[in-house]
Design a protein around this nucleic acid. Structure first.
Ligand code: NAD
Ligand code: NAD
Lengths: 208, 208
DNA sequence: GAAACTCTGTGAACGAGAACTCAATCACGG
DNA sequence: CCGTGATTGAGTTCTCGTTCACAGAGTTTC
């Protein structure tokens, strides 16, 4: 399923809608209006309608959106209907935290592969996953894994990225502070915690 | 120092510029052009000039930007000239990773306070920081701490946020998946790892 | 010291995304 | 089966941010 031209911002909101729908109190009614959805998620209701309208007529005028149908529809758009396996590269401070986290299941994503460079960590088993050495990255395509999470030092990131791309990985979540150079058909999403934190002082009252 | 009207996007790029300047090979030349800076950071050169021009004449035509002067200037804009102490709330998987991380020093930010709810963790000392109980949050204003990092379960986030705001905190880095309701003078920056990860499958080739 | 060259700063054009508005649509009750 | 009320979907406007283009300031060269 691919659609004409959908803003990236819309895609970013879809998982948020999904989470909102899950937590919506299922008191009798089977449907939810764009206004109710907007209230939960703290966006405006025209925003919700516009976002959803990119993907065809999902709602019914006068009623709203059928909760189950909408949920399934959003999952289909995001390709979250079947479980996606993801590979974690770098089992350090951050990598360990991500691996222990169980919340990605909401989005049908499961880390089931871990790569490391440090020989002392290779071979260890965490949450039933055996930590493998980085050279095994090339086997990702065979295993049908096309999502990777990068949690290694910045200096090594481009090198490992190239290996991931060669192994057929199509989406990378990058916690590194480096810019990753990838072919056009590979999607990188960056999370730069340091930069986000560094922005905060700007907004503080002067001298605080 | 406060400026007329600067786009949030510009502020978000300033820490990136800062990091780029630090890593710029200091081979003889004391200055750097908007083009060179743009190349390092993978943005366009007019973007760099526009961003910097919001804050007055920093560069010199025909030459570029004096590296030292520019660095100091950006630090001043972001209020990163003196060290900011930050409080971490929640010493779980993610909190522990953040506390161990040493990279925030680049931006003059230092986590020096940790709050927990779990009695088994309270009192422990990590990296010379004694983990305190959440009720101590109210003492933050006395200690001159106005930045907090939220790494606790979503269910508790609004409650703790209210306490932080009452204690005079003006900036919150929120790793929780909840929307935080705060007064207008408090800045919240959200990092929702789950949502970022959930976006990736959309961009994969269909059926991958 | 003038001419040629380099690079900044900024107003103006452009584009993307958010918010607004309203006609078309559907459920429901009489 | 038609009128009423609710709510969607989409065309339009508005806002924000990026890109462009060029005038002007500074530097170097001869
Ligand atoms: N709180 C945080 O932990 C935090 C905050 C902001 C940014 N980051 C960024 O996230 C990344 C990871 O941070 P961290 O704190 O977990 O670092 P870390 O040093 O604790 O862990 C890095 C791990 O990657 C492994 N590694 C190194 N090179 C590798 C390679 N080529 N292939 C596979 N594994 C390799 C190391 O052995 C180590 O276990 C860094 O880029 C860091 O800047 C982390
Ligand atoms: N990889 C990750 O760890 C990850 C990924 C995505 C999102 N998150 C989000 O980050 C947050 C923290 O995740 P985590 O994995 O570290 O969870 P965690 O359960 O490991 O840690 C939470 C910690 O917060 C403490 N806590 C609970 N209530 C508190 C309160 N009121 N005051 C102070 N401390 C309190 C708990 O005692 C615990 O130590 C969650 O909201 C989670 O959804 C984490």
């Amino acid at each position: 399923m691919r659609y004409h031209k959908v803003p990236d911002e819309t895609i970013r909101r879809l998982p948020v809608y999904l989470r909102g729908l899950c937590s919506f109190p299922n008191n009798g009614s089977h449907s939810i209006s764009s206004q109710q959805l907007a209230d939960i998620l703290h966006v405006k209701s025209p925003q919700v309608r516009k976002d959803l309208s990119y993907f065809g007529d999902i709602g019914t005028p006068g009623v709203g959106y059928d909760i189950q149908k909408l949920t399934k529809h959003i999952r289909a758009i995001l390709q979250l209907n079947n479980v996606h396996c993801a590979a974690l590269v770098g089992y350090g401070n951050l990598g360990a935290a991500l691996l222990k986290y169980t919340g990605f299941g909401t989005f049908c994503i499961e880390i089931n592969t871990v790569f490391e460079k440090d020989p002392r960590k290779i071979g260890r088993v965490v949450r039933n996953i055996k930590i493998e050495e980085v050279s095994k990255i090339s086997s990702l395509s065979k295993r049908g894994i096309s999502i990777a999470i990068l949690a290694i030092p910045a200096a090594e990131s481009q090198d490992v990225t190239d290996k991931l791309v060669n192994a057929g990985v199509g989406g990378i979540l990058n916690f590194t502070s480096s810019y990753l150079s990838v072919p056009a058909n590979v999607k990188v999403i960056n999370i730069d915690i340091g930069v986000s934190l560094a922005c905060l002082p700007y907004y503080l009252p002067v001298g605080a």
